[in-house]
Design a protein around this nucleic acid. Sequence first.
RNA 1: GGGGGUGUAGCUCAGUAGGUUAGAGCGCUGGCCUGUCACGCCAGAGGUCGCGGGUUCGAGUCCCGUCACUCCCGCCA
Length: 627
Amino acid sequence: MHPYRTHTCGALRADHVGAQVRLSGWVHRKRDHGQLLFLDLRDDDGLTQAVIDVSSPIFREVERIRVESVVCVTGQCVRRDPETVNSKLPTGEIEVRVEQFDVLSAAAQVPLQVNSDEDAGEEVRLRHRYLDLRRERMHRNIQLRSEVIFALREKMVEQGFREFQTPILTASSPEGARDYLVPSRLHPGKFYALPQAPQMFKQLLMVAGFDKYFQIAPCFRDEASRADRSPGEFYQLDFEMSFVTQDDVFDAIEPVLAGVFEQFGGGRTVDKPPFRRIPYDEAMLTYGSDKPDLRNPILLADVTEAFRGSGFGIFAKAVDKGSVVRAVPAPGAGGRARSFFDNFNTWAQRQGKAGLGYIIFADDGTPKGPIAKNLETERLDRIKQAAGLKAGDGVFFVCDKASEAAAFAGTVRTEVANALELIEPDCYRFCWVVDFPMYEFDEETGEIAFSHNPFSMPQGGMEALETQDPLTIKASQYDIVCNGVELSSGAIRNHLPEVMYKAFGIVGYSQQEVDDRFSGLINALKYGAPPHGGCAPGIDRMIMLLADEPNIREVIPFPMTQRAEDLMMGAPADVPEDRLKELHLKLSLPKKKAQPTEGAGQGGGNSGSGAPEAGKAGEPGKTGTGG
RNA sequence: GGGGGUGUAGCUCAGUAGGUUAGAGCGCUGGCCUGUCACGCCAGAGGUCGCGGGUUCGAGUCCCGUCACUCCCGCCA
C-alpha cells in the first residue's frame, strides 16, 4: 500500500465499499461524541468523513488531534446507513473506519479559521496566506486561475500563436509608469528595469519574423494599487501579430475571450463575437467613460442647447462660458420621492461638484422640480427627445466643462443605475473602444503629450501628422472592455521609423532623443519591419470577473499589500551593508520624524515569519548611486 | 502626495451619554455524550482595548500625533 494514500479525499464512492483504503489530508473538522468521533479529512480534491469509536485502542490518540493537522488514515471504506448519508458531499454515501492513524504534521492553533466562511482580516490573511489559500473560496479561485490560464494557452495555440519568453531584467522603458529597478553589480551606478510589459520585445519578435507571438507575461509597475489593480506585479495575455489590420487582431482574440468566458463564466450570458465597437468620442459622450459598462442601459445625452439662454440661470450662464450640459436619464424614477433626487444632489456636492440638477416627469408627464419651473415646454420637449425620456422617468443634469461633465455624468450614470437596480445581472458584456486620440493637451505642462501608447500608428499616418492639428489625430489604438472593466489596451503599431520620428517630434523629442531612448526598437524598424499589432488583456482582471470577486487580490495566490509589501515573506527588506557595497549603493533615506522608538514588534506570538523587527525600513527605492 | 473607513481575546465582532469587575460567537483547555456532518451539553483559561501623548477625579469611549490594513483621488492601461 502507498505510504500516504490510495485515494484522494474526493474520490471514494459507493463502489469502493469494502475496500481497504488510505487517505491523507488535513483535519477539516472534528465531531467528538465521547464514545464516537468523526473526522472530516480534506485535501485538494475534496472531503471524506472518517469515523472511529472508543473500542479502538487508538481512539484517544485520534481524539487529541487538532484541526488543520495533516494526518494519514488507513481503514475500510464502509457504506453509511441510509439515514446517515450526507447528500451535500460527493463522498457522502461512504465513510472510512479508522484502523491506523498517523500524524504526518501536527498543527498549532491556527490564526484564522480555515473551515469557516467568516472572512478574516486582510492582514491576517496575507500574513498566513498558506492558511487563507486552504479555505474553500480562495482555493477555488486559484484553481480557476490555473484552469483559465491553461485554456488561454490552448486557445491561443489553436489560433496559430506561439508562446515566447522575454527578458525580466531589461532596460527602463521611457514612457508610462514608474519602473522597478535592479542595481547592477558589474556596472556600477547602472540599473536594470523590470518590464512594465514586454511591449518592445514583442514588436522585436515581429521584426524577427515570428508571425504570431503570445505570452502569459509578468508585468511590473511601481504604482499605487487599487481594488482592481494589483500592487507591484500582474499578468497579461500579451500577444502580437504581423501583417494585420485592427479587424484581424479583433478576430483573433474575440473567440479566445468569448470562449474562456463561456467556459468558466458559470452559465452567465456572454456576448458573441464580433463585439461592439465604440469610438472613443462616442463612449465619452454616451457613457461618460472610456470603459463603458454595457450592462447599464442608461445612455447619456447632450442637452447643452436646451439650456442655452434659458430661464435656468445657473446653467444658462455656464453654457455661455463654454460649459456643456449632460443628461443622465433615470428611467422609471418618476415615482420616486423627492428625497431620492435630493440625495443625489447632496451626494454630488460631497464629491466636490456644484450639484446635480434634476427634473421629475410624473406618470401623467407633468415636469416637476426646481429646474422644470424655469424651462419652457419647447425646451423640456427637447430634453425629453434628446434623452429618450417618457412619462414616469426622471433625469439628472451635469453642467461643467466638457471633459469634467463627461466623466462625472459617467459616474452618475453608474450610481443611478445601481440605485434603480438597472444593471443587467449574470452576463458578460464586451465592447471595443476604438479611435483613441493620439495626443492630448497636458494641462499641467501646457504641452502636447501622447495620450496613450507612443508606439501606436497614428490614423492617417505621416500625412495626418504633417497636416492635422495633433489634437484631432486618432491613434490606431483600442481597448477591450468587459462589464465596465478595462481588460487591456492594444494597437496597430507604428512600424515606420520616419513616422515614429515625426510622431515623437510633435511632443518635443528630437530624432537624437528617440534614437537614444528607444535604440533597440527604432534600429530594428530600419531593417524591414512588418506592419503589426496586438493587445494584452489583463489575466488577473479576467479571473476576477470570472470568479465574481470585487478585489483582484482574491484571485492572486500571494499578493502584496496596498503599500506593496509582502507580509509573509517580509519584502521589501533591508539588506546587509556588504551587499550594498557590492552593488555600489549608498542609502540616502528620508528624514524620519523624531518619535520615540516603538518597543518590541507588534507581531507578538509565533508569527513564524522570521522577519527581524528591523525598525521601520526606510523607503526603498530612494537609493542613491554610489561613487 | 491627498481624502474616507477600520484597528477591543487566537479569529469575527458588540461595548450604550466618559464611570467602578470590558462582553458574545467561534477556536483553545478540562469534563459529559455511540451516528454526527456548523454535533450537543457543562466548566475554565485567555485582553499592553494598535502605539505614544494630552484633557479629566476617572478614557476602550473625548482631543492631538503616529503605525498598520483597506477604499477612493492623484498616479497607472
